[in-house]
Write a protein that binds this DNA or RNA. Structure first.
Length: 105
DNA sequence: GGCTTGACTTACA
DNA sequence: CTGTAAGCCAAGC
């Protein structure tokens, strides 16, 4: 078990199964931290060639945390669609259906 | 060591 | 649903 929160966060995100997503709060809680921003902060530190499926991490609203005009949004959107995630007219997904449970894995 | 910022969340009005 | 406020951890200056 890594002592660094960053590596712990990344390790958890890497455990997210394909076709599912986790919220920042979800990952933060599993990581044992009380600050969901650290999750996004850790992901922001990653590179494009990272092994971490950062695109499977979204906010509690079930939507991508990037502006729809941003490239990051398009990339994450495309990657999620590629895994079977469905977005609604508001660019949001059904958390009830796609949310990840660590025990469900 | 202190202040500011950040891919956030929850609560209240 | 929209707007405001507090909480929390790490990095950068």
């Amino acid at each position: 078990m890594e002592n660094n929160l960053f590596e712990r966060i990344l390790a958890i995100i890497k455990q997210i199964p394909k076709g599912k997503v986790a919220t920042y709060g979800q990952v933060a809680t599993i990581a044992g931290i009380q600050n969901p921003r650290l999750v996004g902060f850790a992901l922001a530190s990653q590179k494009e060639d990272t092994d971490v499926p950062w695109f499977r991490v979204i906010n509690s609203k079930g939507e991508i945390s990037f502006p729809a005009e941003s490239d990051g949004f398009k990339i994450q959107y495309s990657l999620l669609i590629n895994e079977g995630i469905i977005f609604d007219a508001k660019n949001r997904i059904n958390l009830k259906q796609f949310s990840w449970s660590e025990v469900d894995g």
